[in-house]
Amino acid sequence: MSQKIINPSTSVAPAKHSDSTGYDYTIGPQQTLPNAPSLSKATTSLPSVYNESLHASARNPQVSLAAYAFLFQELVTQARNASKSVSEIELRLHRNGYHLGIRLLELLNFRSSVSPGSKNFFKPGNSSQGVNVASSAFQEDSLAQGIANMKRRDLRMVEILQFIHGTVWSYLFGRVGDDLVKSSERENEFMIIDNSPLLTRFISSTNVQCDFFVCGIIEGILDSASFPCNVTAHSVPEQNFDQKVVFVVRFEPQVLEREALRS
């Protein structure tokens, strides 16, 4: 290979990842030219990580809700053990959710802009090892196209909230949220309503609000979309929906200012 990268900041031997063109935090972004031999090599040796994750809607992978519920209960237990107060537990769950949220915006936006017709382009199809160079170059092509045709960024509060209430909710929980309401009292306040939250459905209500995990997801998405805000969860039991939760989104004042400039 032509460019051998000298790695100044770490003593760890750059083992098997040295061929990767992916981001490596010890080196920083690496430049690769399209069609450079290293690129085709990387895409053939690592067919899945960078490409397939974009088109997972085609294969729709699932695990059992039970497996998730056990992982989630252990996540809550860990947060409990590490915390001294209820608000600290909620803060930790929020932080875990935030970690997910910041990863979802661009991915879901990309996926939702791929029209059903072009999905065939992206189908991992024979995603097994045998992807030849030609077809992976073809994939790269259609990938670039997909990015070019991507839905434009949501710039208004209502649009981005509809994205969360619709696209994000469907992705996470398999159905859209139950309602999206604007507060009548405060300009910057919106409410996303979930009548039967999936992740906490096995948890009998306590003074700890485990749905703060989902608050973190929402806040992570909104933050990465440049809508700084604060999200909290509140139980509002009703006759038919005794686990109903309202997620209250409060945007920072600058979001309102920006919105006013655009109108």
Binding site: Q62, S64, A66, Y171, L172
Partner: peptide
Amino acid sequence: TAKINAELF
């Protein structure tokens, strides 16, 4: 078995 998105997991 009720299922959930594996990516969320």
